[in-house]
Nucleic acid binder design. Structure first.
Lengths: 345, 345
DNA sequence: GGGTTATGCGCAAACGTTTGCACATGTATC
DNA sequence: GATACATGTGCAAACGTTTGCGCATAACCC
């Protein structure tokens, strides 16, 4: 309700001035004498006056809101992105409104509509993985056309021309393969993630290129498909590893790395002595397991930061058609699920 | 910018009607004929019309915003609370604005002010742990006085009369002690968390009561203080455990449980055979370690849900002075860091 | 056919700001 | 002492809605 909230009018009456003078005094307009500006400032402070944002927004046709659409809150990667976005957005004096879609593109579209009707000035989006939804793409295009820029992150989509901030999954995977090879692995497999994710595609491409440049051939087929039914996945993964005599594994995620680690430990297969494992993302989980999981760390918070910065650069040059694709480097974080160089061969 | 955004006026001109008719038609006012209501609905849809929220909010002096203040985004517990709050808030057709304070009460106060100037209709707050800040308390009191209810969660503070949603830390700790005793532990220690947290206090009280009711005396002093310098903490924790011949540990958090688990493994002390460990919260980490950590699980998402529901009940009875303190039950989740009953004694 | 009632719609004010323009002083210029 | 200019302030419109009130028209009653 905000009872008794002071208005400019109240300040004006108290000081025997007009509302225009108060308004100008509050914005430090030089046309108002310093004496009056001070008086106004003091009274405003003592009354705890703050401008009614709705009146301001209505008048200026400007919301000061930025919208963010995430798959979910509870995934550490996304919460770091959120943190990065939030920092930049609040530094700029904007407010952030966050929605989630749980990888349901219907919900994503609803979220985007909701943000639009809140008149956000720009949107940062990680779209739903199962998104071949032209309706959604059309919405984002319309949004950009009408002067509300959209920056996508994490997942790349060819169909929609916009700015992207993504991880260098390709080279990240290559660096992982490099390390596996250097520490003696020869039969290296890739444990896929969801196949509608551009990140999965790029990591697999990096996996292949890594093998090629290291002169390891015949491994192209050593990939094991994702299955969201973990039990089923585990049941078949074992034979995949055995049948192919695999001695090194690159995983789409740290969670998959954890699953396969458990699997191997159940079978009494030594990690990293018999099989090396590298995960992807640098999630906390990778530090809690034993052995700790080596992983390709993504700069999650930086992704959020850069996405927000790029969004603001669009806002500041609203007429420019320039778009950016920013590919942020990964870092290979070596822990205990890979061998050290000394152990090679 | 939202170029070319349709207004009621545009719809009115197109249909040769007045803005009042359009407005009423859009809200399904029965005074408008069904024929006209349909016409308007169809045109509005085809033009993608949505009401300008600022005009509406200004007119109705109502923001449709709820504010949430969290310590941080990246802690799993808080992201679950956020999820719970978000669900309820969006179901109610409200928008959520989230701020964080990183346990800095200066930042918390700023966040609260920011939410206030956005005219949120209510706030859900987990305040900064180092908060003896009367300025902040005064702010919340003023907020409630002026018709903007505040619901606190997780951390309890005697100084401010408001609704709270907290975990039953006391009984949660008792259930943990019960289990430790039943499985044969006799020298049970408590590893404290930050001592300015009500949660820490209540868990310690439960620890004591658990010992008392199980007839275990002389353990009152078996608590080890928190130290945010983890290295220093580890260095002294070992002697605490040794000197007291401890065979069972209750920890303030799962992270502390993890730390002590590592410590014990380094010393080649078997968990749970020689020492049992129980953590607190039910964080993901407790499932990734080996042994997996038994823990007192908190209903994090439910906490968020209830906090939001209570907030809305305040909004719906804005004149009522009733406040609620909701204490949500924990669940003892037994994993591998505690012995099974068969192993007792 | 005069009076009442129901139906469907429009006028205009209000919400709290900002801002282009105008106006009233005071001061400097010739 | 008239002209120009600077300084400080106020008037009123505008942003897009909602809504109390009032006004037509039509339908009904007796």
């Amino acid at each position: 309700m905000h009872k008794n909230r002071a208005r400019i009018k109240d300040l004006a009456e108290e000081l025997g001035l007009s509302t225009s003078t108060i308004s100008r005094a509050l914005t430090n307009d030089k046309r108002i004498s310093e004496r009056v500006r001070n008086e106004v400032a003091i009274l405003a402070k003592s009354w705890g006056y703050t401008r009614n944002p709705f009146a301001v927004n209505l008048h200026q046709n400007k919301s000061n809101h930025i919208g963010l659409i995430l798959p979910e809150f509870t995934h550490h990667f996304f919460s770091l992105v959120l943190k990065g976005v939030d920092k930049v957005v609040s530094e700029k004096g904007y407010n952030l409104i966050v929605n989630t879609h749980n990888d349901d593109h219907k919900k994503e579209l609803k979220a985007a509509h909701a943000l639009n009707s809140l008149m956000v000035e720009g949107m940062i989006v990680c779209y739903a993985s199962n998104n071949e939804d032209n309706e959604g793409f059309k919405f984002y295009k319309d949004s950009m056309q009408s002067g509300v820029p959209v920056v996508f992150f994490d997942r790349l989509c060819e169909d929609i021309k916009a700015s992207y901030v993504i991880t260098d999954d390709f080279n990240g995977a290559i660096s992982a393969i490099d390390h596996l090879v250097k520490t003696g692995c020869r039969k290296i497999g890739y444990l896929c993630g969801p196949d509608d994710l551009s990140t999965n595609f790029n990591r697999e491409m990096g996996f292949r290129e890594g093998l090629r440049k290291n002169g390891i051939t015949g491994n192209e087929y050593l990939k094991f498909s994702w299955d969201k039914d973990t039990a089923r996945w585990k049941a078949t993964c074992v034979s995949f590893l055995r049948d192919n005599n695999i001695d090194g594994i690159l995983c789409f995620s740290d969670y998959i790395a954890y699953d396969v680690l458990c699997l191997l430990q159940d079978l009494n297969i030594q990690v990293p002595d018999q099989i090396s494992i590298i995960g992807f993302a640098g999630e906390p989980i990778s530090t809690f397991t034993r052995p700790r999981i080596s992983t390709v760390t993504q700069p999650a918070e930086l992704i959020g930061k850069r996405a927000a910065e790029i969004l603001f650069s669009h806002l500041e040059n609203i007429d420019s058609q320039t778009i950016y694709t920013e590919v942020l480097p990964t870092e290979l974080t070596l822990r205990d699920s890979t061998r050290t160089f000394g152990m090679a061969l």
